[in-house]
């Protein structure tokens, strides 16, 4: 039986060459091999969303994804790139200022999922936000503050984008 296999994972823009066992999930490798514990483990079956990461920009449950299958893909986690990620930071600020963080265990997954949502849909409606949160459980907030935080983050990112845009473009 093949045991350790070498893989090269790109996480938050940094390349990690490691040897892993093929039955390791991406969640296990992030937390246990790379020491990135911001991605949480909870239900282990894709229901709670705490383990959400982005693979090539798309939100996935890292507990249901083999690490070997992430080889060659861009993985983004809550830790973000070393130089920082303005989108992630805006979302984090909004979660903080709108009271969307209580126990904080669902928060990293929610924040990462929000990044994917707003990349696809910069101005989501309330319904679209709620739909995007399907698969993310929060037991503390009742989601109200989370929905508000995402609305706030969307506004914040649009404001930032309009400031960046060359004058006269609107």
């Amino acid at each position: 039986m093949i045991d350790l296999i070498p893989v090269s994972l790109r996480v938050n823009g940094v390349r990690y060459d490691i040897d892993i066992r093929p039955w390791r999930t991406l969640l296990e490798v992030l937390r246990e091999s790379l020491g990135m514990t911001g991605t949480k483990r909870s239900c282990g079956e894709g229901q709670c969303g705490t383990c959400t990461v982005l693979i090539d920009g798309k939100a996935v449950n890292s507990c249901l994804y083999l690490a070997v299958e992430a080889q060659g893909k861009e993985i983004a986690t809550i830790e973000g790139p070393p130089a920082g990620d303005p989108a992630l930071q805006q979302i984090q600020r909004s979660f903080v200022s709108k009271g969307a963080v209580q126990c904080g265990f669902c928060t990293p997954g929610m924040v990462v999922a929000t990044k994917a949502l707003l990349a696809d849909n910069p101005a989501p409606s309330e319904d679209e936000i709620r739909e995007a949160l399907v698969g993310h459980l929060c037991r503390c907030t009742g989601y109200v503050q989370i929905v508000e935080a995402i609305q706030d983050a969307a506004r914040g990112m649009q404001d930032a984008a309009s400031q960046m845009a060359p004058k006269g473009s609107d």
Binding site: T37, Q92, F95, V96, S97, G99, V101, C103, G104, P108
Partner: peptide, 16 residues
């Protein structure tokens, strides 16, 4: 007032 530990938690750096 936002929770004092919220920035840490939102950054995934709160140690559970």
């Amino acid at each position: 007032t936002p929770k004092k530990d919220a920035p840490l938690k939102a950054a995934g750096r709160a140690e559970f």
